[in-house]
């Protein structure tokens, strides 16, 4: 017992000194579990995040838009893989993680449970959803767990084009016909609040935040990150000539930040619990991908074995 306490103290001292923790280092079981939960959730979000956008690849309005969206979705597959690899260094297998996603035990970002109804939604997602993700991910490049931080550096480097891609779509629509601008406004109306929810519950309702900050998993709280996102994004909406769907939104001179309205937390928890517009559809799509790919995975293993055997024989 006292030895355990001592190890925990030493661990905390390493964290406080700004050291990175690597896979084979001693770590408290809760640190390991928290990371498995957070990194796998992040990986699942990248993978499920391909679904709402994949929906529009074949219907992109031009070749320029199509190659951009296709590259973005490819990146998301890659980001999911970086993150799964980082989580695997903590002793969970890829299959276990996939199982947890399909059974609903592991969550993914709720934003991907909203449908993409028009092309403008692809613009709004790139601008807002990737914008919110980048704020979170830039913070995570300095997270205490080495493999997670390194995956984040790579992801951040690649992700900056995603947001620009989205904003360019919005810009094109806002400079187009009245109908196009209305499409852009409608997409903003639907994606603004769910984007704010991406940062998670308010600080006083987020039981994990304090420990996560102490372990330098997070370096800023949910509310701090959300405020940062609002402050950055409002002027970008102004530039587009779009109106934020929040009557309480206004600049607060004293605070030096925008004040904004109350988030509908009932909606947030409903979607987290599986009752969002697309939860079932998303999981069904992942399940189908797993089932339909099974024979391919088995065949690849069988082929690799056969090849090894024939190599052994000829040796």
């Amino acid at each position: 017992m006292s030895k355990e306490v001592n190890l925990e103290e030493q661990f905390q001292a390493r964290i406080d000194a700004g050291e990175r923790i690597e896979p084979k280092d001693w770590m408290p079981e809760r640190y390991r579990k928290t990371h498995i939960r957070q990194i796998s959730q992040h990986a699942h979000s990248e993978v499920v995040g391909m679904l709402p956008e994949g929906n529009w690849i074949t219907r992109a309005p031009s070749l320029r838009r199509k190659v951009g969206l296709l590259a973005k979705v490819q990146d998301e597959a890659g980001h999911g893989l970086y993150l799964y690899s980082a989580a695997e260094t903590l002793g969970i297998s890829r299959d276990q993680m996939e199982e947890q996603l399909l059974s609903g035990k592991a969550k993914y970002s709720s934003i991907f449970n909203y449908p993409t109804l028009s092309w403008a939604d692809i613009g709004a997602i790139g601008w807002l959803v990737d914008g919110a993700a980048i704020i979170n991910q830039v913070m995570l490049t300095r997270t205490s767990y080495g493999p997670y931080a390194r995956a984040m550096v790579r992801i951040c480097k690649e992700e900056s084009f995603h947001q620009r891609q989205g904003y360019e779509i919005m810009l094109g629509l806002c400079q187009g016909s009245r109908e196009q601008k209305e499409m852009a406004q409608d997409a903003l109306n639907r994606f603004w609040w769910p984007s704010l929810m991406m940062f998670g519950p308010r600080d006083h309702e987020s039981p994990n935040t304090e420990q996560s900050v102490r372990w330098k998993i997070k370096r800023k709280t949910n509310d701090e990150l959300r405020q940062q996102f609002v402050d950055i994004t409002v002027p970008q909406a102004d530039y587009l000539g779009l109106k934020m769907p929040d009557p309480d939104l206004k600049w607060n001179e004293e605070r030096g930040h925008y004040d904004f309205g109350e988030i509908n937390w009932d909606e947030f928890w409903q979607v987290v619990k599986g009752n969002g517009p697309c939860n079932k559809e998303r999981i069904a799509a992942r399940q189908a991908a797993r089932d339909n790919g099974e024979w391919v995975r088995e065949a690849a293993i069988a082929h690799a074995k056969k090849k090894r055997q024939s190599l052994d024989k000829s040796a």
Binding site: L81, Y82, S85, E88, A300, I301, H303, A304, R308
Partner: peptide, 11 residues
Amino acid sequence: AGSLHAADSTM
């Protein structure tokens, strides 16, 4: 650079 899963080295 990182790691990945594959059936064999070619893949």
